[in-house]
Simulated scan of single mutants.
Amino acid sequence: MTEIHLKSVRKAYGELEVIHGVDLQVNSGEFCVFVGPSGCGKSTLLRIIAGLEDITSGTIEIDGVVVNTVGAADRGLAMVFQSYALYPHMTVYKNMAFGLENSKMPRAQIDERVRKTAELLQITDYLERRPKALSGGQRQRVAIGRAIVRDPKAFLFDEPLSNLDAELRVTMRKELSALHANIGGTMIYVTHDQVEAMTLADRIVVLQKGIIEQVGAPLDLYNRPCNAFVAGFIGSPRMNMFEGHVTRDGDEMVLNIQGAHLHVPNVPDLKDGDRITMGIRPEHISVHADGSGELNAAVTVSEQLGGDTYVYCDAPGLPQITVHQPGQLPVARGQTLSLSFERAQMHLFGADGKVVANGLPG
Rank of each mutant, 00 (worst) to 15 (best):
S135W: 10
L161W: 06
Y189H: 15
P330R: 03
I110Q: 07
E101Y: 01
G99I: 07
P330S: 01
A133I: 04
L179D: 05
R113P: 00
R203Y: 08
I234M: 07
R115Q: 00
M79A: 06
A201D: 05
L207C: 02
V114H: 01
P37Y: 13
Q194M: 03
A97T: 01
T124V: 00
T309A: 10
G210P: 07
D251E: 14
D165L: 01
T171C: 03
L337R: 08
L161H: 12
G136A: 06
A298V: 13
P237Y: 11
K153P: 09
A143N: 12
T117Q: 02
G136M: 02
F349Q: 04
Y13P: 07
L46M: 05
G210C: 12
M90F: 12
Q304A: 07
T199W: 09
V205W: 08
E243F: 06
M278C: 14
Y312A: 10
N223G: 04
R107A: 15
N68H: 03
R333P: 00
Q335W: 00
G71D: 15
Q258F: 01
E175K: 13
R275A: 15
Q194I: 08
A315H: 09
Q208W: 09
G64A: 13
T124D: 00
F242D: 09
P131H: 09
G184P: 14
V9L: 08
F229Q: 07
L360R: 00
Q109Y: 02
M253D: 07
